[in-house]
């Protein structure tokens, strides 16, 4: 057993004792009842279980939760799909996903949303030139599997969210 503490969507959880072989996914879904983070494969393949980890150096990355122990997240700050909207106000990316009909069954959406959000935040810190945008989105989202949509509308939604504010995400405002 390991005693864990973590910050999830700005709220402190713990101290809680967890089995060393308890996955972070089960910790979220079974122990905390936070089922917005999905279980898809349990093998780190579909990434529908990804959450955002906010690192102490100010960077963030997504992390699958089904192949990583809850103990490994001890002391970390994470964000899940439940934490994006604030007071019912959707983020730009959430709106873009909805307006572009990005998802169908929606089961892989949490992973795509977290990955897209991390990409936006990364570009905000380190903008890209416009011509690299499609490949950056492609690389970011490629680990995520979706069975309904053919991925096109996810890519369109992330791109649209970035191009809505080119000055924020692109070098020279995207020109």
């Amino acid at each position: 057993m390991t005693t864990v503490n973590m910050m999830i969507n700005g709220q402190a959880y713990g101290p809680m004792d967890v089995r060393d072989d308890l996955t972070m996914n089960d910790f979220l879904r079974e122990c905390l009842g936070m089922t917005g983070t999905k279980f898809g494969c349990g093998a780190g393949q579909c990434l529908s279980c990804s959450v955002i980890v906010d690192n102490p150096d100010g960077t963030s990355h997504t992390n699958p939760t089904c192949i990583v122990s809850a103990a490994n997240f001890n002391g970390k700050k994470i964000r899940t799909i439940e934490g994006h909207a604030k007071n019912g106000e959707l983020t730009i990316l959430q709106k873009s996903f909805i307006e572009h009909f990005s998802f169908q069954c929606g089961y892989c959406t949490p992973g795509f949303l977290n990955e897209g959000q991390v990409l936006l935040e990364r570009l905000e810190k380190k903008p890209l030139v416009r011509e690299d945008l499609e490949s950056a989105i492609g690389e970011a989202l490629d680990g995520h599997l979706c069975r309904c949509t053919g991925y096109v509308k996810y890519h369109e939604a992330v791109k649209a969210a970035i191009l809505k504010e080119p000055k924020r995400y692109l070098k020279d405002g995207g020109r």
């Binding site: 349990g42 990364r122 690389e139």
Partner: peptide, 17 residues
């Protein structure tokens, strides 16, 4: 950038996954 080895491969084998 989006797929670091260490995001999945932790410090030791994790058998449940």
């Amino acid at each position: 950038n989006s797929m670091r080895c260490s995001t999945c491969h932790q410090s030791a084998n994790f058998e449940p996954g």
